[in-house]
C-alpha cells in the first residue's frame, strides 16, 4: 500500500524528522511546542480509539483531554526501551477510556440494585458482538485471518473494555481459555500485520 503522506500542517516549522519518541522526551523537559506537535500527530488515532470504546463524542473528548494532560505530566516516565511513544500514548488513552466504561458499568449495577432491590441476581445484558469494521484493507485482512472466537475476544476486551474475568463470565468459558485466546489472537494479529507490511 502507498504510505500516507504526512499531514501537512502549513505552519509547523518543527523539524519533521523528530520522532514521536524525541517529542515525548522533549515534553519531559517542559517543551510545550513538542507537546503540540505530538498532539497534532497522535490525537486522531487517540480520538478514534476513545470513540470506539466509549461510543459517545462527549465522553471520548473528556477521556482524550484527561489522557493528554496525563501524557504531558508523565512524559518523564516514558522509557523508549519499553515501548514506542505511539503505543505508550495509546495505552494511556485506552486506559482512560476503559476506566470510564468500567465505572459506568458499576454505576449502572449500583443504580439497578437501587431500583430493584428484590430482583434476583442481575442478569447482564449480553453484549452483541459488534463486527469490527476497520477502514483499512490491511487491518481488515489481518483481522479476518483470526478465528471468529479470537476476533470476539479482541473486540470484547479492547473495544468494549471488559476485563478477562468479565469476558469469561460473558462467554461462559474458563478464565484460562480467555487468557490464552487473547494472547493467541493478538499474536496472530501481529503476525498477519508483519506478513502484510
Amino acid at each position: 500500500m502507498a504510505s500516507h503522506p504526512a499531514p501537512t500542517a502549513a505552519a509547523e516549522p518543527d523539524p519533521p524528522t523528530a520522532s514521536a519518541e524525541d517529542l515525548l522526551e522533549r515534553c519531559a523537559q517542559g517543551d510545550r511546542g513538542a507537546f503540540v506537535d505530538l498532539y497534532r500527530r497522535l490525537s486522531p488515532g487517540a480520538y478514534g480509539l476513545a470513540l470506539r470504546v466509549l461510543r459517545d463524542e462527549h465522553l471520548a473528548q473528556d477521556a482524550l483531554q484527561e489522557a493528554f494532560e496525563q501524557i504531558w505530566s508523565q512524559s518523564g516516565r516514558y522509557d523508549r526501551s519499553r515501548s514506542s511513544a505511539r503505543s505508550w500514548i495509546l495505552t494511556i488513552v485506552h486506559r482512560r477510556a476503559v476506566d470510564r466504561v468500567r465505572r459506568e458499568q458499576v454505576e449502572r449495577q449500583g443504580a439497578m440494585a437501587w431500583g430493584a432491590q428484590h430482583r434476583e441476581a442481575e442478569h447482564d445484558v449480553v453484549a452483541e458482538v459488534v463486527e469490527l469494521h476497520a477502514d483499512h484493507r490491511r487491518v481488515r485482512a489481518a483481522l479476518s485471518a483470526l478465528t471468529p472466537l479470537q476476533r470476539q475476544a479482541l473486540e470484547l476486551a479492547y473495544h468494549r473494555g471488559l476485563t478477562q474475568t468479565q469476558v469469561a463470565a460473558e462467554l461462559d468459558i474458563p478464565l484460562g481459555t480467555v487468557k490464552t485466546r487473547m494472547r493467541d489472537a493478538i499474536r496472530r494479529l501481529r503476525g498477519e500485520l508483519e506478513g502484510r507490511r
Binding site: 486522531p44 488515532g45 487517540a46 480520538y47 478514534g48 480509539l49 470513540l51 470506539r52 515501548s83 514506542s84 505511539r86 503505543s87 505508550w88 495509546l90 495505552t91 476497520a134 477502514d135 483499512h136 490491511r138 487491518v139 489481518a142 483481522l143 479492547y158 493478538i186 494479529l189 501481529r190 500485520l193
Partner: peptide, 13 residues
C-alpha cells in the same frame, strides 16, 4: 502494543 497501534490508526478521526 505496536500491532494494536496499527489497528487503532485505521479508525483515526
Amino acid at each position: 502494543g505496536d500491532a494494536l497501534s496499527v489497528v487503532v490508526d485505521e479508525s483515526a478521526q
